[in-house]
Design a protein around this nucleic acid. Structure first.
Lengths: 215, 215
DNA sequence: TAATAAAATGAATTTCAGTTCATTTTATAA
DNA sequence: TTATAAAATGAACTGAAATTCATTTTATTA
């Protein structure tokens, strides 16, 4: 009986799987979850419609995989960028800067997470909400730390954290949707100042660094 | 030839049309645009499925009507509430307070505009974007006026306006989705303070009112 | 009350995208 | 080179929801 084992066509298969994901990210970002058909994804990935189902059990499994990967990608990126800092304000800034850097680098990720997928179905909208909440949670932790250190005047750290994240979200979405503001980089520092003032950052005592808060 | 003219069954028909819209707002708010079927809307409005099509050409026409009405409702409400004030900061505050009051009063409106409809399809996502942009525009106008009067330190009024609106949006959505914060009213004043600080509101000179900015 | 037409009904039809599957192609190893 | 099975194909199938339409009900007026 001359059967056969898989060897390094495993690689080829893994490659094709990645290619499907890559293509799907493109198409989802352009259209939306329900706006894109498996047929379109398959075409973009240069495979037959049926082949798709050898790689993913269905459409939902695909978007789930994509959103999960994006979630990890974003969080890992943020954690890396934060790792350098110990100061609360620095960590806060590093988080948001990481988001913006990643969104600029990976446009599809931003479009899918912020624009195309929300509102799809309650089931896995939950996943997106989880991402947003995770960011708010991270932010709140930083704020609580700063509060304990007596370096903030604002009181309600939950509402502050939401305001903080929300202000960034709005500007990023404006940029994604209509290129307004044009330069996200430049808006970033304005936004950061806005929020530091909003948080009630007290003037630095014994610290040496950045003169980029209130003038 | 004994024909017939419509007289005040016109009223009845108009009534039924309103009832369909009312029912649809409920159902869309609970489910989502694609999550709700015309059959469900018809049942909720206590009519047969086919009857629906005597009142609206199709599902899209229905949601369009609803969103358009909500748009007008929101803007009119805001403009009314603003009308009392002349001071820039007061107008700003009145705008956001109007939003929040309306969202509390008309939960469906908030859910549909902020949660259920976004991400449906690019075509009439545009309508929602228009609403958001209109709010940002209004806000920016207030900020520009304040800037001219030299009552703000912040520079970029577009980014500030986006941050302002975005921070409110985030908190309102948190409240709609998970009841966090619990009391939107209370969060409002925190948020307002946050944003006034963020904008760089200068201490009042010759004005008499509210001591609710920085302490 | 009868004739007429608007309004309402809900079963039948259409549409459309997700998914399946019989068939073909490709890769493996004897 | 051939037998075998994995992988790929795309036309056919399916189900669900939008829309239509033949029929019934309701309202109107002579």
């Amino acid at each position: 009986m001359v059967y056969r084992q898989t060897n390094r066509i495993k690689e080829k298969i893994e490659c094709k799987r990645r290619e499907i994901i890559r293509a799907a990210r493109e198409v989802f970002a352009e259209n939306s979850y329900q706006g894109t058909s498996i047929k379109t994804v398959a075409q973009r990935a240069k495979i037959a419609t049926g082949t798709f189902y050898l790689y993913f059990s269905n459409k939902e499994a695909l978007i789930n995989t994509i959103v999960d990967e994006m979630f990890s990608e974003l969080l890992e990126y943020i954690k890396n960028e934060r790792a350098v800092y110990t100061d609360g304000f620095d960590k806060l800034q590093a988080s948001m800067e990481a988001c913006i850097k990643l969104f600029i680098k990976e446009n599809n990720l931003a479009k899918i997470l912020l624009i195309q997928v929300p509102g799809v179905n309650n089931a896995f909208n939950a996943k997106l909400i989880e991402i947003e909440n995770e960011l708010i949670k991270l932010t709140k932790e930083d704020l609580d730390e700063l509060k304990v250190q007596g370096r903030l005047t604002g009181e309600d750290t939950l509402v502050s954290a939401m305001a903080f994240v929300g202000s960034f979200r709005q500007v990023i979405i404006g940029w994604l949707r209509e290129g307004r503001p044009e330069k996200l980089n430049e808006a970033f520092s304005t936004l950061m100042q806005y929020n530091l003032r909003g948080l009630g950052k007290k003037p630095n005592h014994n610290r040496q660094e950045n003169g980029e808060d209130e003038r």
